[in-house]
Design a protein around this nucleic acid. Sequence first.
DNA 1: TTTATGGCTGTCA
DNA 2: ATGACAGCCATAA
Length: 110
Amino acid sequence: MTSPSYPRIYAVVRRIPRGRVASYGQIAKLAGIPGRARQVGYALHALPSGTRLPWHRVINARGAVSPRAHPDEMVLQRLLLEKEGVRFDAGGRTWWSRFGWHPRTRKRLS
DNA sequence: TTTATGGCTGTCA
DNA sequence: ATGACAGCCATAA
């Protein structure tokens, strides 16, 4: 079925409210492609520069900003999150219990 | 086509 | 806690 996963991923990411964060795995699952967290990362990496997608609200399962090829992006991501009120500890990790995104019972609207 | 590489994740030592 | 391994599979070369 050639289901384009990128649009789905983007659709899910777009729902993350301000001041909240979600993990790649969570996004993948909500997008209907569980187990493809890596592809979520790819999809976000492929975003155009002028995007309004809150890609910075997506972090890894450890609750920290994932180290990327360009250190600047990593810093920017954390900066944007802190700007929204998300706080990190000394280890650069955040609290899922507090800033984690808790989506409601969402059945796929297909 | 085959290989290599990833903005990941979970498990085990 | 950290580090190594193994699955997952889309993209690029």
